[in-house]
Amino acid sequence: MAGLEDLYREIILDHYRNPRNRGELEVPPATMAEGFNPLCGDEIQVYVEVRQGIISEVRLGGQGCSISQSSASMMSTAVIGKSTDGARDVMRDFKKMMSIHEDGLDGDATSGQTADRPGASGLGDLEALRGVVKFPVRIKCATLGWNTLDQVLDLLEVE
């Protein structure tokens, strides 16, 4: 049975208490998208600035629960310094980790190809969010920032 410690890992609480990259960026030159979780009313704004093909700055606005806030905070530190393609790679790995597999719904969830090899995904601190899949209702919290980043990257491609 999944317990609270599976969900609220220390590093998650740290990012919740001390969120990284809070604030806004001027649009333009930055690009912004806004995301909503219709289940709980949480909202997030993701600002991304790209210079010479590299994500130079990310800022996060809005409010949400510890899972959505910490996931977005970790996301910001994970993608700064990466190319937009590199950011998409991280996003893909993260979403794979957040996908529920049928055999995992009994509360003993594992996910993705890397479940038995912590760290193998290259997600670093984001691995701490793996426990979220044991609480399926909270997956939308964990992915809110990422889906919003996805929108920003789509906007950047159009530009």
Binding site: G3, L4, C40, C65, S66, I67, R138
Partner: peptide, 19 residues
């Protein structure tokens, strides 16, 4: 946050709604 609060309450068997 209500989501976090209700998650802890759940561990005590207490069913409430958050949102």
């Amino acid at each position: 946050h209500p989501h976090d609060l209700s998650q802890v309450l759940d561990q005590h068997g207490v069913c409430v709604r958050a949102g």
